[in-house]
Design a protein around this nucleic acid. Structure first.
Lengths: 233, 233
DNA sequence: CTGAGCCAAAAAGTCAGACTTATATGTCAC
DNA sequence: GTGACATATAAGTCTGACTTTTTGGCTCAG
């Protein structure tokens, strides 16, 4: 899913990024480029490039005569897929998962409404196919196959909404759904009611019934929220 | 608002970033680091750092033996405040403004609902103060003062929601509101109905009436959408 | 004691050049 | 046509020297 090992600086980021987002270096901590370069056994130029990337994510701030200081969490670019992945891999995964699920609950219903208005025939077909795929793997512990179709379903909804900001959240939703399946309720079959809702959303979109698509999607996302409340109150 | 001139690589980005987001280099275009370095009169190391930042925004992709290729718009990190600013400064500003306003219309009502539930007394006070400030400058062409309070109002709503993803959209909303005031309807006084709605939202939040806060905020954002439809249909 | 101003150290920033590595593409034998 | 191989190309890496900004302390006058 990610792009591991795209150069030395990338490998440095793979350990430094998670460390910072995990709060291993508290806000205000000062790092020195030279020390980091030594620690990671890379040249200063490579280290500088890594720091630049962290800086563009607002994870750190580089100032002369001071060093590279870690910025407070409130400044971070929490929408950067890379940052999201780092945080989901870390300790505050549950907290992060909740934030993202709340975000979903705000975005997806509106997106579904727009999709019902704008979706092409091809997109409707794809959506229906995804919903059917979910039905086909909704029993018998075929969670991986179910997940694939679930992710695809939500990606289509977001992409077909015609809003680029929504479309870009496809990756985020994918992370959330994957995280939920892999770390929370791996054993149980998906909620049959949720499956039905997905089928009905596909229906509503086909029929161009925007309010219904929105309402049904809202039911899906509030369901996801309640599920979180049960698991981590 | 931005951080201009934070090093040579920053100055390079200030011209290269807007150029790319403006579509000056169409997707698939190939740039060479050496050529760019020569063109901008900087060393290769500086140019490389700039490319790394563009790469972390998914604006470009750097591959050996090929060069630095511009990625399609669908890949861009459109939530990166820097990218948003670049795009708002460019040609597709209207399109971008619409995307962001739709995003607002999805997020803010939900955020307002959460804020009604979680806001502290201090936050309620701040919100009320912002609303009063809007009222105080709602007539007599005091648009700048009005804008300041309007932006502050929405920032408080988003920040007090307790969701970090929502809170981080404060900057985006600020850009949208500022853009609207400065480029669209600079001459007219704000809609009195909108002013009233803001006061009522503050009320609802104080009273902890989440559904009402959500509904009223939805009225505000749909109003903003309709305003866009009138101006740029 | 206080404050203005100056100095020196520290760390990032910049540059130039040599070298390494991956890879797209063309070539040639089969 | 197909597969193996050679080659050119552009990014990637490293090193060392130099510059610039900024801070913290020091001196000295008041």
């Amino acid at each position: 899913m990610s792009t591991p090992g795209r150069g030395l600086h990338g490998r440095v980021l793979d350990t430094l990024g998670p460390a910072i987002t995990a709060g291993e270096y508290p806000p205000g901590s000062v790092l020195r480029t030279d020390e980091l370069a030594q620690h990671f056994q890379v040249s200063r130029s490579v280290m500088r490039e890594a720091v630049r990337v962290l800086e563009s994510m607002h994870l750190v701030e580089s100032r002369r005569r001071v060093g590279v200081t870690v910025r407070p969490k409130a400044a971070w670019n929490v929408y950067d897929p890379q940052v999201i992945r780092w945080r989901l891999a870390g300790a505050d995964r549950p907290h992060q998962l909740r934030s993202l699920t709340v975000l979903r609950s705000a975005i997806e219903p509106v997106a579904a409404g727009l999709t019902a208005r704008h979706a092409t025939a091809a997109q409707c077909a794809e959506l229906t196919e995804c919903a059917l795929g979910m039905v086909a793997h909704s029993r018998g512990h075929e969670l991986e196959e179910y997940l694939v179709h679930d992710v695809a379903f939500h990606r289509v909804i977001l992409a077909a909404s015609g809003n680029e900001m929504f479309a870009r959240l496809g990756d985020v939703v994918a992370e959330v759904l994957t995280g939920r399946t892999h770390h929370e309720v791996m054993f149980e079959d998906p909620d049959p009611a949720a499956v039905t809702l997905h089928v009905q959303v596909a229906e509503a979109v086909r029929e161009g019934d925007a309010p219904r698509a929105e309402r049904l999607t809202r039911e899906i996302t509030t369901g996801a929220l309640q599920e979180l409340d049960v698991l981590a109150p």
